[in-house]
Design a protein around this nucleic acid. Structure first.
Lengths: 342, 342
DNA sequence: GTGAAAGCGCTAACAG
DNA sequence: CTGTTAGCGCTTTCAC
């Protein structure tokens, strides 16, 4: 089945020789080019099968200048929200003929810098990047030659494309739901020390807007602050507030992980959900769906985020070189078991 | 900063010209080759910086025949167990100088077949594959030229390397824990219709062995069967058993997702965990840690799995061509809140 | 220690 | 519609 060449490697030329045609004709067959006679096609195909020929991607890439690969850079692959984003982006990319390589930054500054200032050329045709640590200025300065689209709520760089949801509006809708269900002491879990992304602040802003619009008083005590992102830290934050005598009948969480932490804290404090306290998560991940009780959650349209990011990126890869575009993806609030009329 | 060449592309040769040295010398500097004088290195480096030269990966790959890339093929990226496997494999691979591209099969036969019978050459140097649908015979028959290591409990192919945990022993230890805590009506959730992997059967076998070893009676009623893998189906399976009057004081689950489903069903049936019923999960994912109550879980050593898979794969990539090796990674049982003495 | 030249396997422009 | 040929940018013998 293999050619007699050393290493068993079969080249396009070997196929051409065996079939008695030119390399161009073989290439036409491999690429399903229209203008090839049926008998020709068959003859070439049989040579391909006989030799077990497989086109060499690397050579093709060198010749075409395209890799057919995209990089998706995210903080952590095993955080459900990002795992789901990877899934949608990979599906969307596959539909457009791209494969995706996943890069984890672990929210480390150096890793994020490495994404932007790509040292080597020809790894990927484009990059989709969800930054956590580096800011607009740095992205603008280190801006790579490679087409780039940003995800998430970084401060908006003027020069770079960007896809996000309207966090303020989403938070507002979520809080309005709680208010409509008769909740009046609605907490926010939580601001995080050292968080330089805008997400949490925007969500907090929407929370505040909804309260004001409803003519409710804003009690700063209800806005909690966590020392970190872990479930343990977030749980402790709520536990401390409860121990300090602060009372809630609803809690808006910055994401589903925080909601899981809230469930733990409330359980430990002997409070029932949603009887005593309603809980609203964010991101609509598997955590929310599989938890008991199932967590109501603000749901960004991940498929739309992926689709929009790919749209933008493809335009860049096709040569668009204008100013940065900013696209808003839709959101919804999915009601499950942790929210209910009081 | 850019050369005057069209397209702004800077090549090794341009650097060589500017620095007034040969391409070989530039290459030596780029690769930190030892035998280069300090002044030479400096001169070349300044030319590199001046031109903004970035080596072209594709050309390097074509010349060397290595891609520096690995494929990791898994069923679903957004299933926590696999997301965590991706994380460990990616970390391990990065440490060895490889990048990884993630391929989702979605447990579809055709997608799995595509992984094995790679149509194109030069995409990756090696493949790590967690199959769900295709069997030993097919893997052996379609076996690609690309080095391959299998993950999970497929029937063991003689020709292919393979990393797994000892499912039987792990299940036995888990059930022994339950027995030691005074549980006597221990259910198994669940066999799944159409599941052709060995995992569930091996776990069921260990379950059975532990019961026999403890001199307990085996009640077939306690071994449940689900029509599918979704949380809804699994939950319904347990709900049906409960409705049929079958009583449990512990449930061993085939994975953490099934454990989440069990928690839902028990909650709905008004049973408390672990008061009335203990629950043991499998895979030790974030689900188990973040759930309320936190789920005790059989914990495969994912770091060891990743490390071992890479070890095996590197040997293959370095030319080892012997018989398939089978490596067992360690496991443990992590006790959390869903198991406790009765 | 450094330089010149021959590929790596494919694509695409051009000629026939 | 098919064949020829010149690159794509780097690595790597092999002389110097």
């Amino acid at each position: 089945m293999r050619s007699g060449r050393p290493g068993g490697k079969v080249r396009l030329e070997d196929v051409a020789n065996l079939a008695g045609v030119s390399m161009k004709t073989v290439s036409n067959v491999v690429h399903d080019h229209p203008h090839v006679s049926a008998k020709m096609r068959e003859r070439v195909q049989s040579a391909i099968d006989q030799l077990g020929y497989r086109p060499n991607l690397t050579a093709r890439r060198l010749a075409t200048g395209r890799t057919g690969m995209l990089a998706l850079a995210i903080p952590e692959i095993d955080q459900p929200y990002f795992a789901e984003i990877v899934r949608y982006v990979a599906a969307e990319a596959a539909g457009r003929g791209y494969r995706v390589i996943v890069e984890q930054t672990l929210s480390e500054v150096e890793a994020e810098r490495a994404i932007i200032s790509d040292r080597e050329e020809g790894l990927v045709d484009g990059v989709i990047f969800h930054p956590m640590r580096i800011d607009t200025m740095e992205i603008a300065r280190l801006r790579p030659d490679t087409p780039l689209v940003l995800l998430g709520e970084v401060a908006r760089p003027l020069t770079t494309d960007h896809v996000m949801i309207d966090n303020v509006a989403a938070a507002r809708v979520g809080v309005e739901l709680l208010i409509a269900q008769g909740r009046s002491r609605i907490g926010f879990l939580a601001l995080v020390h050292g968080d330089i992304t805008e997400s949490t602040h925007l969500r907090l802003l929407g929370y505040q807007e909804a309260l004001v619009a409803a003519g409710m008083q804003i009690d700063p005590q209800l806005v909690l602050e966590s020392t970190g992102w872990t479930v343990e830290e977030v749980m402790q934050t709520l536990l401390d507030a409860l121990a300090a005598g602060i009372r809630f009948d609803a809690i808006v969480c910055r994401d589903d992980l925080f909601a899981m932490a809230a469930m733990k804290a409330l359980d430990r404090a002997g409070l029932s959900v949603p009887g005593d306290v309603a809980v609203l998560g964010w991101d609509d991940t598997r955590f929310a769906r599989y938890s008991t009780p199932a967590i109501s959650s603000v749901s960004p349209d991940k498929a739309a985020i992926a689709r929009t990011a790919l749209d933008l990126l493809e335009e860049r890869m096709n040569g668009y070189d204008g100013v940065g575009r900013h696209r808003i993806a839709p959101h919804a609030v999915v009601e499950r078991e942790t929210t209910a009329p009081k």
